[in-house]
């Protein structure tokens, strides 16, 4: 059962701002999605090996060899704010 509290918790984890008035709507929608997925529960999967990947590919490696990356200028070109070669972000500790 997805309630308003769960919606607020998920929104907080995902850093989403949700208006209090919309909480009920999201709760119903999430509930519907979960119900839909629950349909899979009727299948007997006891003999199926847990699958984390659908591709039948394993052991894809790279060698431990250096490849050129980005310059500092290129790297920081994406930033909203920067200082002394670093990305500047809102203060994260008090």
């Amino acid at each position: 059962m997805v309630d308003d509290k769960t919606v607020r918790y998920i929104a907080a984890l995902a850093r989403l701002h949700i208006e209090a008035a919309d909480e009920g709507k999201f709760a119903r929608e999430l509930e519907a999605i979960l119900h839909y997925v629950e349909k899979l529960g009727v299948l007997d999967v006891t003999a199926v090996k847990p699958t984390s990947h659908v591709l039948d590919v394993e052991n894809v490696f790279r060698d431990d060899a250096v490849k050129p990356g980005l310059s500092q200028e290129q790297a920081l070109a994406f930033s909203v704010d920067k200082l002394n070669g670093s990305y500047k972000v809102p203060r994260v500790i008090e």
Binding site: V60, F61, R62, D63, D64, K67, G69, L70, S71, Q72, A75, L76, F78, N84, G85, S86, Y87
Partner: peptide, 23 residues
């Protein structure tokens, strides 16, 4: 110097894929 050993993969830019270092 800060942000000089970086590339699209470790910066997490969209469309990039990680590949495991065998070592």
């Amino acid at each position: 110097e800060p942000n000089t050993n970086v590339c699209p993969v470790c910066l997490g830019l969209p469309g990039t894929l990680p590949v495991l270092n065998r070592q």
